Computed example of a mutant assay.
Amino acid sequence: MAGEPFDVLWSRIERRLARSAPACHARLNPPADPAALLRAEQETGRPLPGGLAAWWRAADGVSPARPSLGETPFRLLPYGCDPYPVAEALTRRKLYLRSSHDTVPPPLAAPLEAWLARCGQDPAGTYYPYDATPLWLPQWLPVGGDGLGGGLFVDLRAGDQYGCVVRHGTTSHGPNPSWPNIETLLAHVADTLEDLDRDGD
């Protein structure tokens, strides 16, 4: 349901997870420490969108899946992704930023820095999926991963699409946001879980 309060939205997800995917429900972490949210804002230099902060205050991502042999773990988010705890999101961000620098020859390091700075001034929702060099901006914060190097990030740059959610792979990212914000992503998750629940009745 569009525009529903976050606590109602999260309650829908938790209720359906407990019923239809109890193993995934059991992997939900306790709420994030407020200091962790502050650290995320300090490291990115940007405020967290309200929906993302509320999500981490409800559950600090999930613990790693430990499926039995031959079992495929249930992933909470689309594209086979699980939500990251705050600490994991920050660690992944650092890895992706380092990877951008490690793939560029030393003579191009300064132009890369200038390019990153210029792209950081673009409005949220501006992407570069066809660049030859994998690009990761300091204002992009990973929020979920598929375990294979891909996942979802939130764009923290200023603009009308601030807080939008974008899919990324190992070498590039989508040309457009997949969802306008975390709330819309989680509404999609809640709707999907309720559809699965109805199909199981």
Rank of each mutant, 00 (worst) to 15 (best):
V143C: 08
W115C: 07
P142C: 14
E14Q: 15
P175L: 11
P5F: 04
E4S: 15
P180D: 11
S99Y: 12
P67Q: 07
G70P: 07
Y128R: 08
C164H: 03
E113W: 04
A18L: 15
E71T: 15
A21K: 06
L186S: 10
N29K: 13
A87Y: 06
S99Q: 13
W55S: 01
T91V: 08
G3I: 06
V165C: 09
A18V: 12
V154T: 12
L196C: 02
A23T: 13
G61L: 03
R157Q: 12
L137D: 01
E4C: 11
W56P: 04
N176P: 00
G144K: 01
V189R: 10
L52G: 01
G50H: 13
C24W: 02
D199W: 07
D131K: 05
L135K: 05
D7E: 15
P111Q: 07
Y127E: 05
G163H: 05
W56C: 06
Y128W: 15
S63E: 09
D155K: 05
D191Q: 13
R66G: 08
Y127L: 08
Q121S: 11
L28N: 08
H168K: 10
D131W: 12
A132D: 11
H101W: 11
L135S: 06
T44C: 12
R66W: 10
T72E: 15
S172Y: 00
S11H: 09
G51C: 13
T171H: 10
L77I: 08
R98Y: 00
K94P: 01
P30G: 15
Y96C: 05
P85C: 13
P73L: 05
A110W: 07
L95G: 03
L135Q: 02
Y96Q: 06
G150W: 00
A109G: 10
C81R: 03
Q121N: 11
L76I: 06
C81N: 03
T103N: 03
G163A: 10
F153G: 00
Y162G: 01
E43P: 02
A36D: 01
L95I: 06
A110Y: 04
L112Q: 12
S99K: 10
P47S: 05
C164Y: 01
A190V: 11
D60S: 04
G147W: 08
S100I: 01
R46I: 04
R198F: 13
L185M: 14
F6S: 14
L90V: 05
A23P: 02
L9A: 01
H101Y: 07
F74H: 14
R92W: 14
L48I: 14
R198W: 13
P129T: 04
A58M: 05
S178E: 15
L69F: 15
H25E: 07
S11T: 15
A35F: 12
E41D: 10
Q161E: 15
Y162E: 09
R16D: 14
R39D: 08
T72D: 13
W115I: 05
D60E: 09
Y128Q: 04
T103E: 04
C119H: 03
C119K: 07
E194W: 07
G174F: 08
C81F: 05
T126A: 12
D155E: 07
A114S: 09
W10A: 09
P142A: 13
T192I: 00
H168S: 09
